[in-house]
Computed example of a mutant assay.
Amino acid sequence: MTKNLGQIDQEAQYKGNGSIIQILKHFRTGFRTRLAHPESIAQNMKPSSRLIILASAVFLSACATMFPQAVAVGDSEADVIARRGQPTYRYQDGKDRLLEYKMGPWGQRTYMARIGPDGRVVSFEQVLTTQKFATIKVGEATKNDVLKTIGGPSETSYLPLRDLEVWSYPYKEADVWNSLMHVHFDRSGVVQQMMNGPDPRFDPDRRFPFSMMR
Results as ranks from 00 to 15, higher is better:
Met1Thr: 13
Leu5Cys: 03
Gly6Thr: 15
Glu11Thr: 11
Ala12Arg: 15
Lys15Thr: 14
Lys15Ala: 14
Asn17Gln: 14
Gly18Cys: 05
Ser19His: 10
Ser19Phe: 12
His26Asn: 15
His26Phe: 14
His26Arg: 15
Phe27Pro: 00
Gly30Thr: 11
Arg32Leu: 13
Arg32Pro: 00
Arg32Lys: 12
Thr33Met: 12
Arg34Leu: 15
Ala36Phe: 06
Glu39Val: 10
Ala42Lys: 10
Met45His: 04
Lys46Tyr: 07
Ser49Glu: 12
Ser49Cys: 05
Leu51Tyr: 07
Ile53Asn: 08
Leu54Asp: 13
Ala57Ser: 11
Ala57Cys: 08
Val58Leu: 07
Leu60Ser: 06
Leu60Ile: 13
Cys63Ser: 08
Thr65Tyr: 12
Met66Ala: 11
Phe67Pro: 04
Pro68Glu: 00
Pro68Gly: 02
Asp79Ala: 13
Val80Gly: 02
Val80Glu: 01
Arg84Ser: 07
Arg84Tyr: 06
Thr88Tyr: 07
Arg90Glu: 14
Tyr91Leu: 08
Gln92Glu: 08
Asp93Arg: 11
Gly94Lys: 00
Arg97Gly: 05
Glu100Phe: 07
Tyr101Lys: 04
Lys102Cys: 03
Lys102Met: 07
Thr110Glu: 03
Ala113Ser: 07
Ala113Ile: 03
Arg114Cys: 01
Ile115Glu: 01
Gly116His: 01
Pro117His: 00
Gln126Gly: 02
Leu128Cys: 04
Lys132Ser: 10
Val138Arg: 07
Thr142Phe: 02
Lys143Trp: 01
Asn144Cys: 01
Asn144Thr: 14
Asp145Ser: 05
Leu147Gly: 06
Gly151Thr: 02
Gly151Leu: 00
Pro153Leu: 02
Glu155Phe: 11
Tyr158Arg: 01
Pro160Asp: 01
Asp163Ala: 13
Ser168Trp: 04
Lys172Glu: 10
Glu173Arg: 15
Ala174Trp: 11
Val176Ser: 10
Met181His: 06
His182Gln: 15
His184Asp: 02
His184Arg: 10
Asp186Tyr: 06
Met195Ile: 15
Asn196Glu: 10
Asn196Ala: 12
Gly197Asn: 08
Pro200Tyr: 06
Asp205Glu: 09
Arg206His: 05
Pro209Arg: 04
Pro209Gln: 03
Pro209Asp: 04
Ser211Asp: 13
Ser211His: 07
Arg214Ser: 09
